[in-house]
């Protein structure tokens, strides 16, 4: 049982995440891909921490923070997506822009 399994798994997860970020056009799916990437990070961190026997446990600490960061990102991200959905549903963005231009010129 070596380090290879978790790190390769993490690399694969990360690659899938990158692919998702680049290939997807849906904001929520991109967000999910990012979460995948963060999952890879967490996995890497925990693996290295356990393997190194790091006495200060830095890897696990950062892993905890990564989890929290991921959660916070999801929170803020979904809020923005929701807002966008509302704005698009209620006021069309194009007309809004057009009005702004008209005032300016």
């Amino acid at each position: 049982m070596g380090i290879a399994y978790p790190t390769v798994l993490a690399a694969v997860l990360f690659a899938i995440g990158i692919y998702g970020v680049l290939a997807r056009r849906n904001a929520v799916l991109i967000l999910m891909s990012v979460e995948l990437m963060l999952g890879a990070v967490t996995l890497n961190l925990v693996t290295f921490d356990a393997l190194l026997g790091d006495p200060s446990r830095s890897g696990q600490v950062l892993a905890l923070f990564v989890i929290v960061i991921a959660a916070a990102e999801v929170g803020v991200g979904l809020a923005i997506v929701l807002l966008l959905f509302r704005n698009r549903a209620s006021i069309s963005v194009d007309t809004l822009d057009g009005r702004g231009e008209a005032v300016r010129r």
Binding site: V68, A72, G75, L78
Partner: peptide
Amino acid sequence: VRYYVFAFLYLIFAVDAVFLFP
């Protein structure tokens, strides 16, 4: 939309609780 608010509250507080255990 209120389901979203539930999710949000949970997200904030439950994840913070992660720090409690260590």
